[in-house]
Computed example of a mutant assay.
Amino acid sequence: MWFAIIAAVVAGWMVQLYFSFHQATAFNKAVVALRAQGTVSVGAGGKRYRGGRAFVAIAVDERDTVVDAITLQGLTTFARARALPGACGQTLRRLGSDREIPALTRQQREAARQAATLFVEGRERATRDAEGGVPTSAG
């Protein structure tokens, strides 16, 4: 009896891992497709068990404007990447600020803010390294 219960739990876990892998692979393919439109940054927002998490990938042009964006949001492993037109046309400065963007949910807003912040920090780090700056980590 116990063996059947444990086997069912393990089987369910394996199925969940399988679908999670395919979800992550599909999102990564969508992110790779964004790279043709500009430099890409990805952020995550929201709480896992309080309203769910959202992932947002933004493609940024040389004028620091979002030219394309996708989001992955849902409570199951069946969620797939979708276009996020509300982020398109926004500047990194606006995405990185606390201002509301009505077309985005709270989770998407947090994820877009993180993606914009990571983009700016990465660019600043690359500029500092190119100029011969001091490394930030000891080691």
Rank of each mutant, 00 (worst) to 15 (best):
W2G: 11
A4V: 08
I5R: 06
I6N: 14
A8D: 13
V9T: 10
W13Y: 08
F19T: 15
F19V: 09
F21K: 12
Q23F: 09
A24N: 10
A24E: 12
T25I: 12
T25S: 09
K29V: 00
A30G: 04
R35T: 14
R35L: 03
Q37L: 13
Q37H: 10
G38W: 00
T39M: 05
V40N: 06
G43T: 12
K47H: 14
K47M: 08
Y49D: 12
R50Y: 04
G51P: 15
G51S: 10
A54Q: 14
V56R: 05
V56K: 13
A59M: 10
V60S: 13
R63W: 09
V66P: 15
I70V: 14
G74R: 03
L75D: 15
T77M: 11
R82M: 01
P85D: 02
G86W: 09
A87L: 06
A87W: 11
C88D: 13
R94F: 06
G96Y: 02
S97G: 14
D98V: 10
I101W: 04
P102L: 03
P102S: 11
T105I: 01
Q107F: 04
E110A: 12
E110C: 05
A115D: 13
A116T: 03
L118Q: 15
E121T: 05
E121I: 02
E124T: 02
R125Q: 08
A126R: 12
R128S: 11
A130V: 01
E131M: 05
V134L: 06
P135A: 08
